[in-house]
């Protein structure tokens, strides 16, 4: 955060990079979450019920375990891709 406070004084060009770093942090935390979800789902017994929460509400819909596992795996892959893209862009910037 101290670095963040210093950057705006240096120039406006750094604002997007600040945003991207935040986004990167969010992504990393999300990836961690998703990893845990995949592990949990994969370790569940076959007769366990899985519920999926409706966004922004307290209702949980019954879902299929295998489907949820595959879905969570997919999301994890997507998140990883996104994270890597950001990292690559940063690297290229630094190189330049």
């Amino acid at each position: 955060m101290p670095s963040r406070g210093a950057r705006p004084e240096d120039g406006s060009g750094l604002v997007p990079t600040d945003n991207s770093t935040q986004h990167k942090e969010d992504l990393s935390s999300k990836i961690k979450e998703q990893k845990i979800v995949v592990d949990e789902l994969s370790n569940l017994k076959k007769n366990r019920k899985v519920y999926r929460q409706q966004q922004n509400s307290d209702i949980f819909f019954l879902a299929d375990r295998t489907e949820m596992l595959s879905e969570s795996k997919n999301t994890l892959d997507e998140l990883r891709k996104e994270y890597q893209e950001i990292e690559n862009s940063e690297k290229t910037k630094i190189k330049k």
Partner: peptide
């Protein structure tokens, strides 16, 4: 027709 849910 119907969904099994967890009612909060």
């Amino acid at each position: 027709l119907s969904y099994n849910i967890m009612v909060p």
